[in-house]
Nucleic acid binder design. Structure first.
Length: 330
DNA sequence: ATAGTCTTCCGCCAAG
DNA sequence: CGCTTGGCGGAAGACT
């Protein structure tokens, strides 16, 4: 049976979830293919060391043993993933980068997990591409490589044949997306179910979703309200109405909300609406009017102004630039 | 594009 | 007394 060779490169010290998560996803995909009686090529998934030494220290303190050193890999590779962690951020050997560069035209798709993006960038594979990495490192990546278009928002993005994912556990989402690309959503969903994961996170593609901000509130009423807001974006979310809901005076409500959530009520509502609007634009074919209505904007004009303020582009520009699903009409 | 609302947000301060 | 609450006013800026 033909195989798709998937190489996961670990750079010690490696972030352990970056290594194990994708390994689990691809190997589980093989099991699901078997249980479906599929004759599609299986993944030959392998952990490879970016050094000569096979022992990989993880940041959590245990060790993983790679099956080979990168220098022993000379057969064709379908998917090459660079896992992240302190090692990836610190940089790899020039020899490894040379090896990586030499594969730029033969590997079907490159991927990075977390700070693995720095390694791809070091190898010059991200020039001019739109990429992401762990939210804490987006600024650093952008500063080190001004010619890379770093987007701190999504949990993963692809640009041509380069796939980059956000921090730590986002590598699992990226791997699932690759499985879906290869074998369709039925197989990907089976993998997600088996591993007890979301095929698509309820918060969409955002790295830091606004409901998570609201969950930080210690005052239960405000925490509940923050969640309620994200579920009722079409409702009356003016300050006096919100204050009424929690039985506070307007003045005290704005004061407490800002203290507990870290955003003023108005900012929070705006963020929540924008997040939903972005997701709708990225993943559906709904018209701008429909998106505006769904998200609680009075008109497409209001939606447009909100986008210009926060994203710097109009909703339709945003949609054409950031559409998520491969193969969608453009 | 402009003008006239409407809304938000925050400092101030008196009252619990 | 220290701390929280809530009414008021007005500047900024968003909406129609």
């Amino acid at each position: 049976m033909r195989v798709k060779r998937v190489i996961i490169v670990a750079v010690p010290p490696a972030q352990e979830l970056n290594v194990v998560g994708p390994l689990s996803v691809f190997s589980t995909a093989n099991e699901m293919l078997t249980s479906f009686g599929s004759d599609a090529p299986r993944y030959d998934v392998e952990l490879v060391s970016a050094n000569m030494e096979l022992k990989i220290n993880s940041q959590a303190g245990f060790s993983i043993v790679a099956s080979r050193s990168y220098s022993d890999v000379d057969e064709p590779v379908d998917t090459l993933l660079i896992s992240g962690g302190e090692g990836a951020y610190a940089g790899t050997s020039p020899d490894f980068l040379t090896w990586l560069k030499a594969r730029r035209h033969t590997v079907r798709r490159f991927g990075s997990l977390c700070t693995g993006a720095f390694v791809l960038a070091d190898a010059g594979l991200l020039k001019g591409s739109r990429v992401t990495t762990h939210w804490q490192f987006c600024a650093a990546l952008s500063k080190r490589y001004p010619d890379i278009d770093v987007d701190a928002d999504p949990i993963w993005v692809y640009d041509k044949n380069v796939y980059t994912s956000a921090g730590i556990s986002a590598g699992v989402d990226l791997s699932l997306a690759m499985v879906e690309e290869d074998h369709g959503s039925k197989v990907a969903l089976a993998v997600a179910r088996y591993l007890v994961l979301f095929l698509r996170r309820p918060s969409g593609q955002a790295q830091l979703s606004i409901p998570m901000t609201g969950q930080a509130a210690e005052v239960i009423e405000l925490r509940d309200l923050a969640v309620w807001i994200t579920n009722n974006l079409r409702g009356d979310l003016r300050v006096d109405a919100l204050a009424d809901r929690v039985g506070m005076s307007e003045r005290n409500f704005t004061r407490m909300f800002a203290r507990e959530v870290g955003l003023s009520p108005g900012q929070y509502v705006e963020q929540a609406r924008l997040e939903l609007a972005k997701r709708e634009l990225q993943t559906t074919a709904a018209s701008i009017d429909e998106v505006a209505d769904l998200c609680g904007y009075g008109s497409r004009e209001v939606l447009r102004r909100a986008f210009m303020r926060h994203a710097g582009v109009s909703p339709s520009q945003y949609r054409s630039r950031f559409r998520v699903r491969p193969g969608s009409d453009d």
